[in-house]
Amino acid sequence: MIVAENLRVEFRRRLFAPKLQALIGLNLDVRDGDFFALVGQNGAGKSTAMYCMLGLLAPTSGKIEVMGRTPDLGAPANEQVAYLPEEPHYHLYLTVEEATRYYSTLYGRRVPESTISDVLDRLGLGPFRSLRLSKCSKGMKQKVGIAQCLIHETRLLFLDEPTRGLDPLVVREFREALREIHKRGTTVVMNSHVLSEIEMLANRVAIIDAGRVVLQDDLQNLLTLDKESYGVTFTPVGDVPSFITSVERVGDLVRGSVPKERLYDFMEYSRTAGATVQECSLKRSSLEDSFFKVVNEGRATA
């Protein structure tokens, strides 16, 4: 669906300012039907990568193809693309209803008024349809962005920090809507800082750091990345053995990590010292754990 090979993007913020390298040989492969998440710190290059996929930014070098074509401004292939921007860069002089109608008509088809009313009502924007976007809160603007994404059934949906500024109720509804859209066959590419949200939605993840993809894999592989250690929680007696790492004290309890090969040593310690073991299980790392591990390893290698 999307292939990026050795993508480089350099630009100047001002005339005569030194060149910034936003992407340095980025490689990416988004398959048809993926719910693909781009993860990275601020300035890592996630949004730049997405702008290249959308045709808003021409790469300095490298190749990018979306649905078999090089993306371009207003290309006919955009008929199959919906995009929700990170910042509410909308036409602020239009009302909620006018903006929704305008954005949906840019697909070259007139959208029935009933469909526009329906989507605005579903997002709770019905009572505010005559309000200009300049007067709307950030969350309401975001909802307008969501509305224009939901009106047309597209093959590809780009979401740049989609739940920023939304209230928890709408976030949950929106997540459900995304799952449903993905289930219907739409490929979703999402940028987000909310790693828990990505864990809930995505099936594939690319971790971007300093303009390059440091890891691209199925989410499940990232979540079970740390198969080599056990997470333990116990009431200590005497000193905590040195083979237990990442020790954290919570009241009378100690939480820590035991390497797989030292599991029997831990059992022996608890039996001989009389420590009460509350929990001992194969450690499943969260996406957050994997993210920091991969980024730190990448930087150490570099």
Partner: peptide, 19 residues
């Protein structure tokens, strides 16, 4: 009020399929 008035019907309207 925009958020509290959210109807419990899901967000996806009848989508217009791309031609």
């Amino acid at each position: 009020a925009a958020s509290t008035a959210l109807p419990n019907r899901g967000l996806i309207p009848v989508q217009t399929p791309a031609a």
